[in-house]
């Protein structure tokens, strides 16, 4: 089993619109898989299908090495923990009592409650009723619920929702540490590229229900390769000269963009332009940020 989650052609149709379309997710064992996409991309819908909470219109899910079906669903899911969209809780019970209910259903030892409370740092609040919790505390409780019994696989849907900056940072560090500490695999969704960049080893980008990129995060970084940007006083003439000399280039924001070349080649191109009477104003080495790559992949501006 290389992949702890593997979906084939997973699709969900609402009305005549596909919310998720032919998704082939592959989440490697031991990874932190960042599931990235703008609002409404289909992240929650996909994760719900992986857990069998909603029925796919098409396609299937392999999870923890087994084909998911209604019969084996609960047995398989005993080894998973999840936090989907907003945390689930009984407001009239205390945090500790909420965890106790999940503990009984998951059939794990009582000491586990103390452990998870400690991990999410909610020990002080465990005797308080959950309806009196702040949003961030509820979110922590949701994570504690997911962590009970140290599941092999964790599905977290936008777990940093509602947390303050310190809380967000803490949550990211925590998620990042789970594979080494407890041998868990984590699938975590987010609409923030920077967040995925911080904690994930693998990334899947979903947009409009379709998976448009899926690989190691390092591969995404490689796309962020360096380029040479040249700006001149007479761009039109510069294009002509370059075309005549069969030099390949791209135009971005009126800059001439060249791939990284040997030093001498850059010098030659600059001389060529100067010899043709074109004044050079700037020669810059630029690197595309992950955001720019994300935008060029999805065509969407994302908030950061």
């Amino acid at each position: 089993m290389n992949y702890i989650i593997e979906t084939k052609m997973l699709s969900k149709q609402y009305g005549n619109k596909y919310s998720v379309k032919q998704l082939d997710l592959r989440v490697p064992v031991g990874s932190v898989y960042g599931f990235l996409g703008p609002n409404g991309a289909g992240k929650t819908t996909s994760m719900k299908m992986v857990l069998g909470l909603i029925k796919p219109t098409e396609g299937n899910v392999r999870i923890l090495g087994k084909q998911l079906c209604e019969k084996n669903r609960i047995t398989i899911l005993k080894n998973t923990g999840s936090l989907i969209e907003s945390p689930s809780y009984y407001g009239h019970l205390t945090g500790g009592e909420n965890l106790e209910i999940v503990r009984i259903l998951k059939n794990v030892s009582k000491s586990e409650i103390g452990n998870v409370l400690k991990i999410v740092r909610l020990e002080e609040e465990q005797h308080k009723k959950v309806k009196n919790y702040s949003l961030g505390m509820k979110q922590r409780l949701g994570l504690a619920v997911a962590l009970i019994g140290r599941p092999k696989l964790l599905l977290l849907d936008e777990p940093t929702n509602g947390l303050d900056p310190a809380g967000i940072q803490e949550m990211r560090e925590l998620i990042k540490s789970l594979p080494q500490k407890y041998g868990m695999t984590v699938m975590v969704s987010s609409h923030l590229l920077s967040e995925v960049d911080q904690m994930a080893t693998n990334v899947g980008i979903i947009d409009n229900g379709e998976l448009i990129f899926q690989d190691n995060l390092s591969l995404l970084h490689q796309q962020a390769s360096k380029k040479i940007h040249i700006r001149t006083l007479d761009q039109v003439k510069a294009f002509e000269v370059l075309n005549q000399n069969a030099i390949k280039y791209k135009v971005e924001q009126e800059n001439i963009v060249l791939p990284i070349l040997a030093e001498i080649e850059v010098a030659n191109i600059v001389s060529l332009l100067v010899e043709n009477g074109i004044g050079i104003t700037r020669v810059i080495e630029k690197q595309k940020s992950l955001e720019e790559i994300f935008i060029s992949l999805t065509g969407k501006q994302v908030s950061l």
Partner: peptide, 17 residues
Amino acid sequence: DIENKGNTLKLLYTLEE
């Protein structure tokens, strides 16, 4: 109503049939 209020069904459905 406690199940509606706390959105608990999506959690319970991962724990029991």
